[in-house]
Design a binder for these strands. Structure first.
Length: 290
DNA sequence: CTTCTTGTTACTGA
DNA sequence: ATCAGTAACAAGAA
């Protein structure tokens, strides 16, 4: 499940590899993934090149040298962007475990061919993800739909914090549902919401409106540290995620609650519980979190 | 066979 | 209009 740290890791990996390299060919193996715009897709990308890559929440934005469109990619649950230097397997690199598989494979949906012989594969087992071209106007609309970026300068500003506190207090649903809502704060998904709430010592099922000022502050203060640690570990591979080199992330061993139901809390030894909140599997320590 | 997995959105009802 | 809750999507694992 790629969330902010995983998407950020992929972008950082891709930048030095594919920027300003000509795109010589594009292959679409599943038209649904490019919103059935295969012809337009090929026409706009072939002979073009990516000049920069940005991220909004969990969405990747690839800016193009030519034309007035940008390419946006959402990995949803099982999407992957894997870069290969031709057919050669890239040795070493990062610390994650090497996923040595052949590409393309049956989950490959789109292939980008670069002028230097390298390849970028968009793989997606469950095909919820997408790769699509949108105009700058639509890009503005997309960006508008997202809330505050945890790593933007404004995130720590007093005015933003006050506004976030107010928004959270006003919600009549669980704090977990609030943190999953990309329109308030962007980038958190099921794994990191559970981790943030553990760090903040707040139970996920608590009603947002019931939280004390100090508890909301603890939550806001926990977001950056949790995400930073995860980025440092190159993300969390729970089942499907791999980075741009096809390597798994290393954060699983550092998870405090997610995926640890029935195991002992690393802080207090109590058994980690698993319940359903906001329709999602939710993990917490009843002793550490109140 | 059933149940579970999740990011996002469509839909429903308040 | 806004908000909240749930089903749906897809494909595989257990």
């Amino acid at each position: 499940m790629p969330e902010l740290p995983e998407v950020e890791t992929i972008i950082r990996d891709l930048r030095p590899k594919i920027l300003d390299i000509g795109i010589s060919k594009v292959e679409v193996l599943l038209p649904r993934i490019v919103k059935n715009q295969t012809q337009l897709f090929k026409k706009r990308l072939t002979g073009n090149s990516f000049i920069s890559i940005e991220r909004v929440g969990k969405v990747l934005i690839f800016y193009l040298r030519k034309g007035d469109k940008v390419l946006i990619v959402h990995l949803k649950m099982t999407g992957q962007l894997i870069y290969r230097q031709g057919k050669r397997i890239i040795a070493g690199g990062h610390s994650g475990e090497k996923q040595d598989f052949d590409l393309p494979n049956k989950h490959t949906r789109v292939i980008f061919y670069f002028a230097d012989g390298s390849l970028l594969f968009f793989n997606d087992l469950r095909t919820f993800g997408y790769v699509k071209l949108i105009g700058l106007e639509e890009l503005r609309e997309v960006k508008k739909g997202f809330g505050v970026e945890p790593f933007s300068p404004e995130f720590t500003q007093e005015a933003t914090r006050e506004s976030l506190k107010k928004k959270i207090k006003a919600r009549q649903t669980s704090i977990k549902a609030v943190l999953l809502n990309q329109e308030i704060i962007t980038g958190l998904g099921n794994i990191y919401v559970d981790e943030v709430l553990f760090r903040a010592k707040v139970r996920p099922q608590r009603k947002a409106s019931s939280l004390k000022k100090k508890e909301i502050e603890a939550i806001l203060d926990s977001i950056r540290p949790v995400l930073l640690q995860a980025i440092k570990a190159r993300g969390t591979t729970f089942n499907n995620y791999v980075d741009a080199d096809g390597n798994t992330g290393n954060f699983v061993s550092r998870l405090m609650v997610y995926g640890r139901a029935g195991e002992k809390c690393k802080k207090c030894g109590a058994v980690i519980k698993k319940i359903k909140v906001a329709g999602r599997g939710t993990h917490y320590c009843a002793q550490c979190q109140k």
